[in-house]
Design a protein around this nucleic acid. Structure first.
Lengths: 126, 126
DNA sequence: TATTAAATGATAACCATTATCATTATAAGG
DNA sequence: CCTTATAATGATAATGGTTATCATTTAATA
């Protein structure tokens, strides 16, 4: 699929680790701030670029655009999300959606990705 | 839920009808262009404002942000979508996802909305 | 018809993201 | 090691969708 050769860089490692360590379905801005703590010279463009690349590569998952910014997840197993409209926290929800996938595939679509998210109020904000 | 009184305006009618008549999970820009054909004085802010309001009201559904712009649907029955990564067309997919909803609700989330979308290549673009 | 509050439309502002590009760092071979 | 080719970085400008502001207009109600 891709014939470009990716190099291993310190920045890419830091960005990946940030998503993993933050563990909050991080936005680019959150990753930038986190990485900048240990590596102040990091540039925003590098963060945006790498998140995008890693999502394309499959190292990370782009889970959608919530309240105006893209969010990424390091959990690669199938699951979905719940976003609180008040505190804007993104929660994981475990559940099987394989038959939805079947429906889509039976419509002759070649599926590459999937975003499933519910919204409303979380336990704390109810 | 809302105690504000909404007025009936020509613009709001035109905007709603545009979404319905276009029938393509329209973006604000598409709606703006369509309405402007018959009502050139329409302002973009009015279009954005009304789409947002009608989505909150439940007259329309915000179905997600695809390729950088919000899309709206006039179909209110439960269904989901497939977005082609090449031609960027948004297709409807019919299917039952009530058990996903149950999963979320059993996690004590008060659900208000839901976005389910798959992506990949459509029949034409494969 | 007068009053009141919501709606409009022009415009500026906002903000996440992307493009540009000179510089730097990585990988691979000699 | 050293060289070379090329991907990656980071500063910055530019982009583009969306929202805020506000004076003016319009709809609803009495």
């Amino acid at each position: 699929m891709k014939n470009t050769k990716l190099k291993n860089t310190v920045q890419r490692q830091l960005i990946y680790n940030a998503v993993k360590e933050l563990n909050v379905h991080a936005s680019a801005e959150q990753v930038f701030e986190y990485v900048a703590l240990k590596h102040p010279s990091i540039g925003k463009a590098t963060v945006y670029r790498n998140l995008r690349q890693m999502a394309q590569n499959g190292q990370l998952v782009y889970i959608g655009d919530f309240y105006g910014c893209a969010r990424y997840d390091h959990h690669l197993h199938p699951h979905y999300h719940f976003v609180c409209d008040k505190c804007r926290t993104v929660f994981d929800v475990e559940g099987d959606f394989s038959h939805l996938l079947s429906d889509v595939q039976s419509d002759n679509f070649k599926v590459a990705g999937c975003n499933i998210s519910f919204s409303g109020l979380c336990k704390n904000c109810t």
